[in-house]
Amino acid sequence: MLKLDNLSARVGEEESEKTILNGLSLEVPAGEVHAIMGPNGAGKSTLAYLLTGREGYEVTGGTATLDGKDLLAMEPEDRAAHGVFLSFQYPVEIPGVPVMTFVRTAMNAQRKARGEEEMSAPEFIKKAREIGGILNIDAEMLKRPVNVGFSGGEKKRLEIFQMMMMEPRFSILDETDSGLDIDALKTVANGVNALRSPERSMLVITHYQRLLDHIRPDKVHVLAKGRIIKSGGPELAEQLERDGYDGILGEVA
């Protein structure tokens, strides 16, 4: 599914230029959920943005492919049509565009790009209602402009709502647990777990272990200074929680 090979990238121009990924290699096979953990400034969010095509990052080496296709050569919307989804750490407000309009426009744009039929309005509404029910998102919220006036928790739930509507093949969850109370965390985790399947993979970026208690990863990677310094099973997350990043960093150094 996703394969990153020796990926290096930098941000900024000339004097403020900074290397943020430094030979990162990672493979997430189909059907697996991998977690990326790491201290602040390790390059976690950069990785998410780089994989989804946000401007302002320059790839200086290496490759990123999804099912063998060169992700880095695609526009952000083409990556989305190929099944890449990012649950944003800070979801963006879109004044004047209601959630339903937004999600439907996005889904139909993806379908069009893939040469599929558009989803009919009744079909769409039915699905939105079902998923809204699972995530505690009522019809009123779906009529409001995207993220405008939403609480932190509502924004995160709306990200997962979009993810469940779009059923992406490869999802990146960037600190989806931040700003969620324990009940909301469980709701969100249930939604994410419902999407797990042999054809889908996920990359869960997080600071803390608590999300991983609910979304059990197949593998855990520790990212520091722009590359993976250690990989392991779920027990690695527990070790991190116990010893902190300093422990792991010291161990590797």
Partner: peptide, 22 residues
Amino acid sequence: ALFYMRQRGIPHMEARALLTEA
């Protein structure tokens, strides 16, 4: 906002149009 919309699969022109229309 443009990037957020494109990440969801909305092509650049369409994203721009939606934002401007709003």
